[in-house]
Design a binder for these strands. Structure first.
Lengths: 333, 333
DNA sequence: ACACAAAATGAAAGCGATTACATTATGAAA
DNA sequence: TTTCATAATGTAATCGCTTTCATTTTGTGT
């Protein structure tokens, strides 16, 4: 592998000059620059990124920490982050936190050790305090899917409460008065917010929140199924005509339970989901759901970094609004 | 940030000794080792990975190139790769090839420039020759989802032909004689193989392959829908009682078209998919499909590297067998 | 032709580790 | 006690680049 030294020899210039042409430094005459470029070409020279990083203290890499890699959720986000960053020749190092505080911290350490110039974090278990503290360190961070007031300008997030409100409001406008809810895990911020939105819509319509009709799932299909089984048992005592689930995966689990027990959806029961995962429109019935522009948020996080870290001139906006996507799983009573 | 030098000063030893204790080199007395460890602890020392990589010419990173990041397919694979590697303190750098030869090559270059110790490649556009050539280079590669005879020991793949055979065979055993097929893109190896398996099952049962009943999709839900629309038009001339799709996404697109036009599935038409993506069991009807252990293949690729590159003692096997998962979308005629 | 500011180039000191080689300490055998 | 192999430690070169500062070249105005 040719080194910068080889290039400098062949071009008949000094190391510094070669370095200058690599780094687009202007103080090089056109003639010299061309000689260097030719030499590089001829030698098939590729700079050694480790040496560059060591000397410049900049790695051109950003660490991305997500809570999971499988599931329909993170793929699009990662895809956007990767492509946005790649365009600028930055690369992404991924780590997974599994929604566990210890693992999340561990992963942060790991990425930091790896010399990332910045971190994009989608973490849920770790405390606000930890993140605030981390943000004071030398490595910039951006948070996806989380709002912390003290570092709000570093937070890219969805108005989950509004989305929760929309979902339930939609059902209420369709005439539903008895609405069950399958929630995400109470330890996750977004799950809490979505539920809060649900309650707001309810109280706005003077409907009392019935905790017997609220089941705490964990965002998985299985828990959606479990929750639905539970709700179906409640139904004799506490009838309901619609259920909103805190994400699409749980809806699909819930619907499959209903279908198995011979119910007809949406005729017997309306459903509204959340996230608008790609499959939502291919599930039958097609899911009415709240759109979560997760890929755009991923992109925005990448742009934020490009702007703040690598000084690109870019507009970023931090907060995203959910949108109701009305399809076929919800009908008027 | 403390450096190795600071540690050596505090511990009262030389740089070399500190380096030795970091690298678990045994030639250090317990007493000294402890002094060094204490010093590290006290200083909160973290080795600089760039310096390490530069000096040792080993980055402890592996590049993973997938064709896409979104979709239900790659998440589980990435997840397994990441966790397996992470356990050994290796990290993964991801890149996306978008099934395009130029982009794939570009990404390979990119990962190589980044000093990856090895590459895990899931590429489809690039030629066998290119890969064979690449495998002769200094950086080891493993191929997922692709078989190339000359470098077969580096290939982790699924017997796609067998899976294609299984899917159709299953329908034939259910009494179906007229079977339509929605294929993946003809330029992708796995799509071709699956189709070959389909044809083998057909000919084994003395059923002629009807090209009018074969539609080439691109693995997306949309193309499944398009394909189904086409097939439905053919149906008056060329009746069929079942359709097999080369992946689950296309099935779901296809089924949704049928449902929209008022058909009842599986009563009016049986379906078999391929891949067994997580959602397959939550779609209604639950999909009969061919299991594709993509996450295991990801894990195996990681293990292969650990074994061959970092000298871990691990058993790896290269070829995976598909398995038929019979659910509800296919019923006897 | 001369002076001088600006532009172009070079020399050399890091960056923070690894590692070959040299040196010293240790302890068992004679 | 002496001798030596072996274990423990240290010295210093090296990895390939960036960057500061010094030096040389260039070009302009006179």
């Amino acid at each position: 592998m040719a080194t910068i030294y080889d290039v400098s020899q062949l071009a008949g210039v000094s190391l510094a000059t070669v370095s200058r042409v690599m780094n687009k430094n202007t103080n090089v005459s056109d003639k010299t620059r061309q000689r260097v470029l030719d030499a590089m070409e001829k030698l098939g020279y590729r700079p050694n990124t480790f040496a560059q990083s060591l000397a410049s203290n900049c790695s051109n890499s950003v660490g991305v920490l997500v809570s999971q890699l499988d599931g329909p959720y993170y793929g699009p986000m990662m895809a956007e982050i990767e492509s946005s960053l790649r365009l600028e020749n930055k690369h992404v190092i991924i780590a997974v936190g599994h929604s566990d505080a210890a693992q999340e911290k561990d992963s942060v350490e790991f990425l930091l050790d790896r010399g990332c110039d910045a971190l994009i974090l989608d973490v849920e278990a770790v405390s606000d305090e930890y993140l605030i503290n981390l943000s004071k360190g030398p490595t910039p961070i951006v948070l996806i899917n989380r709002y912390i007031e003290q570092i709000s300008e570093r937070c890219i997030y969805l108005e989950n409460e509004v989305g929760g409100y929309m979902a339930t409001k939609h059902l209420i406008m369709q005439g539903h008065r008895h609405i069950a809810y399958i929630s995400g895990p109470a330890k996750k911020h977004d799950a809490i917010e979505r539920l809060v939105g649900h309650k707001r819509a309810l109280s706005e319509a003077n409907i009392e929140f019935t905790s017997a009709l609220c089941f705490e799932g964990d965002y998985s299909e299985e828990s959606g199924a479990t929750g639905m089984t539970y709700l179906l048992q409640q139904r004799s005592k506490k009838p309901f005509t619609a259920v909103v689930c805190a994400n699409d995966q749980m809806v699909s689990g819930a619907i499959s339970v209903c279908l198995e027990s011979g119910m007809r959806i949406p005729h017997d029961l309306s459903f509204v989901g959340y996230d608008n995962i790609p499959f939502a429109r291919y599930i039958s019935p097609k899911l009415t759901t709240v759109n979560n522009p997760i890929h755009e948020m991923g992109k925005m996080a990448a742009l934020w970094l490009l702007k703040n870290l690598y000084n690109k001139n870019i507009d970023v906006n931090n907060v995203f609004m959910p949108e109701l996507v009305i399809r076929e799983s919800s009908i008027p009573v």
